[in-house]
Structures are given as structure tokens and as C-alpha cells.
């Protein structure tokens, strides 16, 4: 290194780049975005903190608002759970994209020489992790408050599938909404009508598991949920490039 003024000149400028167009580069970019989101969140705790507080407040308010008998409680559980997850999820989606927009970081991501769908999957995976963490904390609390056993493998699978679908649509729409001045208001308005095909089967299938329905009755909702997950992920994969480019 040689000093020039207050800065230094790099003598060894040999930079070796891996191919970024292959599957390895694609997965590496996804991993880098997830790592970045988790590392930043670990420091600030802004996103998870807001999601958690909001989710817990919703559960508590419902607990006081619905003074119901045990049977009725069981029938409303899936609805209350998904309202909580959806509202808390919207908060997280908004914040997650706002972080990218505020310092122009979205441009930094878009300048990377990787397929832009990798950026979508990176952000979506990060959002999914945050949503699952919130759900993992809300479920035991809900179980205690409502005296309901929520730790059933079938119900947990529905929550996972529903969260995947919710995050798949939410990440795409939040990357659209973040360009607008009214992004905080715009996202829920855009998201809830579009995500209904995920939320309805998720609520119905959750209800089926909680009330002990036959698997044959639940399967149709589960199939619908899986189909919508695949459709929403495929659509987002195809259109993300156009959504984020001017």
C-alpha cells in the first residue's frame, strides 16, 4: 500500500470472481440476503420486536373480548390465530422492505450480478424465518391463555404452509408497495384481498385439525393451500424482475 493524501492506493487489485450465473451463485446470493437480514435484526430487534408485541397484544385482546365456552373457543381458535399471524406478518413485511428502501439498499441488491429472483427468494426466506419465530412464541402463549392444545403435527404443518404462501405473496407485494409514499397503508390494502386464497384454506384446515375432523375432510383444504403456495411462488419468481425495475 502507498499513501496518497488521506487515502491509500490499492496495489494488489487482483480480484477473482466466481460465476454468479450458476446455481451455486444463485444459492449463495439467497444465503447472503438471509444472513444479512438475520444479522441486522439480531442487532436492532426492530422488526421481530414490533411483530411480537403486536401479535401478543392481538391474542390478549381476543382473550378478553371473547369470553366463550370451551367448545366455541375451539371453533374460533384457528380464526384468531390466523388474524394474529396475518396482521403481525404485514408489520414485518413492511419493515423488512422499508429497511431496503430507506438507505437505497434495494438498488444495492438490484445491482448485484445475480438473477433478480434470487433477491426475491432471499427476502422471502428471511421474512419466513421472522414469521415462524413469532408463531413459535405466540403458539405456546395462546395454548396457555385459551387452554387449547395447539401442538399437533397436522396443525403445525398447516401453519408452515400458510406462512409460506403468506410470505410468498407478501414479499412480492411489499416490494411493489415500498416504491409508494403511502407504503405503510398500501401493503395491507393490496395484500389481504390477494392472500385470501391462502388464508381461507389455512383457517379451514387449521380448524379441521383442532376439531378433530377426518383427514379426508381436511385434505381438500390442504391441497388448495399447497396449490396456492406453488402458484404464488411461481408468479413471484416470474414477475419480481418487472416489479422492482423502473
Amino acid at each position: 500500500m502507498s499513501e496518497i493524501g488521506t487515502t491509500k492506493v490499492l496495489e494488489d487489485n487482483l480480484v477473482t470472481l466466481r460465476r454468479t450465473s450458476g446455481l451455486g451463485g444463485y444459492l449463495r446470493a439467497i444465503g447472503a440476503i438471509v444472513w444479512k437480514d438475520l444479522a441486522a435484526e439480531l442487532r436492532s430487534r426492530e422488526l421481530l420486536g414490533a411483530m411480537l408485541v403486536f401479535a401478543l397484544l392481538v391474542v390478549l385482546i381476543f382473550n378478553f373480548a371473547l369470553e366463550l365456552d370451551i367448545r366455541t373457543r375451539e371453533t374460533v381458535t384457528s380464526g384468531v390465530l390466523w388474524v394474529t399471524f396475518a396482521f403481525a406478518g404485514t408489520l414485518g413485511l413492511n419493515r423488512s422492505m422499508a429497511v431496503e428502501k430507506d438507505r437505497g439498499c434495494l438498488d444495492g441488491l438490484l445491482l448485484a450480478p445475480v438473477d433478480r429472483s434470487a433477491l426475491y427468494f432471499g427476502k422471502a426466506l428471511g421474512n419466513l424465518v421472522f414469521m415462524l419465530i413469532v408463531e413459535a412464541i405466540v403458539l405456546p402463549l395462546y395454548s396457555v391463555l385459551y387452554n387449547t392444545n395447539l401442538f399437533q403435527p397436522g396443525l403445525l404443518a398447516v401453519i408452515l404452509l400458510g406462512s409460506i404462501g403468506y410470505v410468498a405473496v407478501g414479499t412480492l407485494l411489499s416490494s411493489m408497495a415500498v416504491q409508494a409514499r403511502t407504503r405503510d397503508v398500501l401493503l395491507p390494502i393490496l395484500l389481504f384481498p390477494v392472500v385470501l386464497p391462502v388464508l381461507v384454506p389455512a383457517v379451514k384446515a387449521s380448524n379441521g385439525f383442532l376439531l378433530g375432523f377426518e383427514m379426508a375432510e381436511i385434505w381438500s383444504w390442504l391441497n388448495l393451500l399447497i396449490v396456492y403456495d406453488v402458484v404464488f411462488i411461481a408468479v413471484a419468481f416470474m414477475v419480481f424482475d418487472y416489479v422492482v425495475e423502473e
Binding site: 444479512k36 444479522a39 442487532r43 444495492g108 448485484a112 450480478p113
Partner: peptide
């Protein structure tokens, strides 16, 4: 990214560029 250190920011972009 404000919540990452200078070094972490550069490492993140290094991975995005496949360095």
C-alpha cells in the same frame, strides 16, 4: 445497511458478487 458493521456490509456484497 446501518445495522451491519462496515466489514459486514462489504462481506455481504462480496458474497453477492461471488468474490
Amino acid at each position: 445497511y446501518g445495522d451491519l458493521t462496515a466489514e459486514e456490509n462489504l462481506f455481504f456484497y462480496s458474497r453477492m458478487y461471488g468474490l
